[in-house]
Simulated scan of single mutants.
Amino acid sequence: MATVKWSLDPLHSEVQFKVKHLMITTVTGYFQSFNVEVETEEEDFSQASNILFTADVNSINTNNEQRDTHLKSSEFFDTDTHGDIRFVGNHYEQTSSDTARLHGDLTIKGLTKPVSVDVEFGGTVIDPYGQTKAGFTVTGKISRKEFDLTWNAVTEAGSVVVSDDIRVNAEIQLVKQA
């Protein structure tokens, strides 16, 4: 079997995260600079290996410059010391013909923890330019405190300002490499 390499199509991909603010609304943010590389046997993603996702934390965008600057500071991501987020997938567990559970190691702020995410495979198609593309929706949830993202404040009523749970949603389109 031949190994096939896939790389990110950044024009048709996005990575977003959501966090509760004051426990009454949700704030959405994006990483504007990220990369994904995958190797498969033939075009069979059930045999995916060498799955690598990286995001440049300095590209974080929550549509609020002051908040983005705070997120980059030592109180959160500490981008002067830890400029990227890294996920290395080590087991792609097919759960049905178009869904899977991807297990791997997530590194944020120098801390590496095992994480699993749900993957919905949208399929493969040849685009009008003759490129083979594959599409995925990736969803998951992590605890920010497990990665030393512990800053918080408390309101007068005793509610926390930022929830511990971070929901992640990514739309990933990959291009088969020649």
Rank of each mutant, 00 (worst) to 15 (best):
V4D: 11
W6L: 03
P10E: 13
P10F: 01
P10N: 10
S13C: 01
F17S: 07
K18W: 09
V19C: 10
V19L: 14
V19H: 05
V19F: 05
K20G: 07
H21C: 01
T25I: 13
T28R: 14
T28N: 08
S33H: 15
V36E: 04
V36H: 09
E37T: 14
E39F: 04
T40W: 01
S49T: 15
S49P: 04
T54C: 04
T54N: 04
T54M: 02
A55H: 07
N58T: 10
T62M: 02
T62G: 00
N64S: 08
D68I: 06
H70P: 13
H70T: 07
H70G: 09
L71R: 11
E75P: 12
F77M: 11
D78Q: 05
T79W: 08
D84C: 05
D84Q: 02
R86G: 02
G89I: 03
N90G: 00
N90S: 12
H91E: 14
S96F: 11
D98Q: 04
T99Y: 00
A100R: 09
R101S: 05
L102H: 05
G104I: 06
G104Y: 03
L106S: 07
I108Q: 07
K109S: 05
K109V: 13
P114T: 07
P114K: 03
V115G: 01
V117F: 05
E120M: 09
F121M: 13
G123Y: 00
I126D: 12
P128I: 06
Q131D: 13
F136V: 15
F136A: 04
V138I: 13
G140I: 08
G140H: 15
I142S: 03
K145H: 04
K145C: 13
D148Y: 12
T155K: 15
S159A: 08
V160I: 11
V162M: 10
V162K: 01
S163L: 08
N169M: 08
I172L: 01
Q173E: 12
Q177Y: 12
Q177L: 04
